[in-house]
Each structure stands twice: as structure tokens, then as C-alpha cells.
């Protein structure tokens, strides 16, 4: 981080390469809006650059970035709700690895699971993304969401049960796709 503060271009590039996609992924899961998610990630990095000179060595960059992105995403969602504007750019993350024709069935399954995740309340989606997809510990995820570990566990349990319920009907089909 000290190198970033001194304007080391290589350090900055490495940092962005490492954290940008997961950050956009989290914001996209939360806002379900591609352009908003990208704006949020960019803003998070701008704030990181500003903070770099006063960076506390004990702070973890990924956790800090996720927390900023989480807060910005909440702001974006609330702003959208206040304005009563439905997102015209609802997007899910495109899986670029499954575009081959032979993988169509798997792509269908992926889309079903994506749709099931999207149907969850925002906080449950966020909790699942942080713990399952970002491999964060329960304490880190709770810290990012500014909630207790108990509250996080409640969100996770409800979220996973909700997903299981939504996907139950397609269980056989879905399980076949995993093989």
C-alpha cells in the first residue's frame, strides 16, 4: 500500500487486477445493475487511492474495498428506491466460459441458479456472495455488512434455504448438470 501511495504504477495495476472483478461482482450481485456496479467499483478505488497515504497497515485491502462497495451499493439501491426508478439495466454476470454449444444445458442451469439468487432479498444475496463466492470468514463478512455474526448467520441460513426451496422443483435437472 505504501508503494501505491507513492504512485508506483505496477503496484496500482496489480492491486486493481486482483480486486476489480470480485468488487464489481459483489456490487452487481447487490444492485443487479451493470453500469451501477462498475461505477461503484471505480468509486471504491478512487476512495482507496485517497486513503492510501493514511493507510493503516493492519487493515486488509479486500475487506476495506468490499465494505466501501457494499455501502455504495446500499446507497445506490436506496437512491433507486427513493426515485421509484426500476433499473433498465438489470444484468446478471455473463459466464464467458460456457458459451459453447455443447454447454447449453449447463448454461440453462446456471441461468436458473442466477435467477434464484436474484430472487433473494438483497441482504441475503450479499451474505451468500461474501461467504460462498468471496470465501470470506463469517467475521469479515459481518464486518463488511456492519452486522453481528449472529445476524449474518441468520441471513445465510434464510438465503440458502430460500435458494433450496426455489431450486427444489428443478432438482433432478440441476443435479444432472453438475456431473
Amino acid at each position: 500500500m505504501a508503494q501505491v501511495a507513492q504512485g508506483d504504477a505496477v503496484a496500482c495495476r496489480l492491486l486493481v487486477q486482483r480486486h476489480l472483478s470480485p468488487l464489481v461482482g459483489l456490487a452487481l450481485r447487490m444492485t443487479r445493475n451493470n453500469s451501477e456496479a462498475e461505477d461503484i467499483a471505480q468509486e471504491a478505488f478512487v476512495r482507496l487511492w485517497k486513503q492510501s497515504k493514511n493507510w493503516q497497515p493492519k487493515a486488509k485491502i479486500s475487506t476495506w474495498l468490499y465494505r466501501v462497495a457494499h455501502n455504495l451499493s446500499i446507497d445506490a439501491i436506496r437512491r433507486r428506491e427513493r426515485q421509484g426508478v426500476a433499473s433498465s439495466d438489470m444484468t446478471e454476470i455473463e459466464d464467458t466460459t460456457t458459451n459453447q454449444s455443447g454447454m447449453r444445458h449447463k448454461q440453462d442451469v446456471t441461468n436458473q441458479v442466477q435467477a434464484a439468487i436474484s430472487s433473494l432479498p438483497e441482504r441475503q444475496r450479499t451474505a451468500i456472495t461474501l461467504v460462498h463466492h468471496r470465501d470470506l470468514s463469517n467475521k469479515e463478512a459481518a464486518n463488511i455488512m456492519d452486522i453481528s455474526v449472529d445476524a449474518l448467520e441468520s441471513l445465510l441460513a434464510r438465503g440458502r434455504r430460500g435458494l433450496r426451496k426455489v431450486l427444489e422443483d428443478q432438482r433432478e435437472d440441476l443435479l444432472g448438470a453438475q456431473l
Binding site: 472483478s21 452487481l28 442451469v109 446456471t110 439468487i117 435458494l163 431450486l167 440441476l174 448438470a177
Partner: peptide, 9 residues
Amino acid sequence: LLDLTPSEP
């Protein structure tokens, strides 16, 4: 199933 969904655009 969750692993099937890409989370990094």
C-alpha cells in the same frame, strides 16, 4: 449449484 454461477464479471 452456487459454484456454477460466475461471480466475477
